[in-house]
Computed example of a mutant assay.
Amino acid sequence: MDSGNTYWDDRALLEWQVELGADDAIQDTPVDRYALVAAKPTPKAEAPQTPPAPPEPVKVDAVAEARIAAKNAADLPALAAALQGFEHCEIKRGARSCVFSDGNPAARVMIVGEPPNRDEDRAGKPFVGPAGQLLDKMLAAIDLGRAHDDPARSVYIGNVMPWRPPSNRAPDADEIAMMLPFLERHIALADPDIVVLMGNAPCQALLGRTGITRMRGTWATVLGKPCLPMFHPNYLLRNTAAKREAWADLLDLNARLEQ
């Protein structure tokens, strides 16, 4: 019988080592445990994750929205409501009132004025205060008035835009373009015989040009209707010498109505 180590001898030695507390197998060559710890690779720091970019705001075509809203207005009250609900014009946020119209909607003459000033913004009506008083006197001189029940001698008044710009500044081209569908629909629904454009802003919106001192008194066509550019009453209050030209334009307007 072989006198060397047997299976049982090896097992006995292993059990003896376990009882002594051995928990690692011993190899033929020593292992430097400190070197193993030093050589252990350092875990790579995870790169900070970039937060996802916020979604780009949806761009709204304000002019297209205005066209849709204006086209869907079947009558003047619906158009006024559409303007009240239109939220894409920043000017609206600083204005007190939506200044839509005044006078007789069935009138033969429709006056389109500049954007509302402070008095008009407070009253919610176009052409009030000193400018409105002067306009009423000018119209009365040729037997017209906003309070006339007779459409033949009454006027209907609107503005190139319904909200007062900050500090009474002039509206820019984008703001005028945004409000143009509402203005065109306003004229179409009122259906006057003659349109009077008082000031530069209405001329810019409907005729595509400015220079009221050159344009006044010269008849043009707007939406298939004859139109007459005239000085705004505010201009006449500052330049009284221009009242002579304004009087000539009023006589011309009256002659056209009597044709």
Results as ranks from 00 to 15, higher is better:
V160R: 00
D24H: 15
R118Y: 15
D9V: 11
A45I: 12
A66M: 03
F231E: 04
S97A: 13
N104T: 08
V18E: 13
I111A: 03
L79C: 01
Q27F: 10
D10T: 12
N200C: 07
L237D: 04
A220M: 10
P229N: 08
A81K: 07
D150G: 06
P181Q: 01
P54W: 05
M110Y: 06
L197S: 05
V31M: 04
W163V: 05
P51W: 09
D174Q: 07
T213G: 06
A123G: 06
T218W: 14
A35D: 15
V18F: 12
N254M: 07
V128W: 05
R146S: 05
V37I: 11
C98P: 06
V31N: 09
A147L: 12
I111H: 00
D149H: 08
A39E: 14
A201D: 13
P202Q: 04
E19W: 12
R67L: 10
A190P: 10
R146H: 08
A38P: 04
P51E: 09
D10N: 12
T240H: 14
T210I: 13
A70V: 04
R164S: 05
E46H: 13
A38R: 09
A170M: 10
D2F: 15
I187L: 01
I176L: 13
H88Y: 15
P151M: 02
T50N: 14
A170W: 10
M198T: 06
R11N: 07
N254E: 14
I176W: 01
D172T: 05
E120W: 08
P55Q: 12
A246G: 04
G129K: 11
I212E: 00
T213L: 09
C203E: 01
A64K: 06
Y7M: 08
G113N: 08
L206A: 00
E19M: 11
S97L: 11
R96W: 07
D193P: 00
L257T: 06
P51H: 07
L183Q: 03
S101M: 12
I176S: 01
M179N: 06
C227I: 01
E90Y: 11
I26Q: 12
D75R: 03
V222S: 01
D9K: 07
M178P: 03
W247D: 14
A241W: 07
N234D: 15
N117Y: 09
T221G: 05
N234P: 02
K59V: 15
R146W: 05
P130N: 11
P166W: 11
D23N: 08
L76T: 04
A62K: 02
K137F: 13
D2W: 12
A248V: 13
V58R: 12
P233T: 04
A81C: 05
A246R: 09
A22W: 15
N168M: 09
Y235F: 15
T42Y: 11
A74P: 07
K225S: 00
G145L: 03
P126C: 04
P43S: 08
L139C: 06
E46N: 12
V58S: 09
P166D: 06
R214L: 12
E56V: 14
P229G: 05
A25K: 05
